[in-house]
Write a protein that binds this DNA or RNA. Structure first.
Lengths: 104, 104
DNA sequence: CTCGTGCGTTAGTAATCGCTTACATTTGCG
DNA sequence: CGCAAATGTAAGCGATTACTAACGCACGAG
């Protein structure tokens, strides 16, 4: 999950994920969208695959990538929880105030 | 916005932002939560401040930090849009298919 | 079997990151 | 003023990042 968020902190990878969101796209077709080398894209795809954000299917000499909706959904849920889990935050802040009072 | 997402890709900074979510907390109180140096936390706070995710208020020798809800909301909106903006994705995928057909 | 194509992998590089240690700055207090 | 507390800043370090260039490998066509 942490790996997924880190992977999407990179704009290029966000764009790649968009491209393969609901279609399988071959690596070279993905690379055609960018000004960088195929190699760079291949490495980005590795990062996305290791973060489990995309899946790869091989067919002949081609390699098709597609977003993995489960992981995307998990990441989304993780963030939604982050924005809204106020209880944990309040507790931690209260502890800080408490500690400050005690240590003086 | 990009800076904000990048800032939150770091677990420590996510935790810091949580701590100052709805309370002003002094730098040293924030640092007390972690095993790393005050200095490291100070640098994390700089990153968060430059990403406009927190604001700083000085009072005497203290420096109080608090999350900036506007930026958090913007980031959240940006991501919500990312997850759901399907039209752009379809267009891009269609272009890829088109290009592939043309180039053969 | 051999050659071109599609892609990954390796090696190398400049930049950035997260961290520590040491020093600087500001503020309040006696 | 002189010292201590709260905090930032600077310098340096090992790890990682995003990239390029070059090579390697598997597959399909002839």
């Amino acid at each position: 999950m942490d790996a997924a968020l880190k992977a999407l902190a990179e704009p290029r990878r966000r764009e790649i994920l968009r491209i393969v969101w609901d279609h399988e796209v071959a690596a070279s077709d993905i690379a055609a969208h960018f000004d960088v080398t195929r190699s760079a894209i291949s490495q980005h795809l590795s990062v996305l695959r290791e973060a489990d954000l995309v899946v790869e299917r091989r067919e002949g000499t081609h390699r098709y990538y597609r977003a993995k909706p489960e992981t995307v959904a998990e990441l989304r849920a993780f963030l939604d929880d982050y924005w809204t889990s106020g209880l944990g935050r309040l507790r931690v802040a209260a502890e800080a105030a408490e500690r400050r009072r005690r240590d003086r």
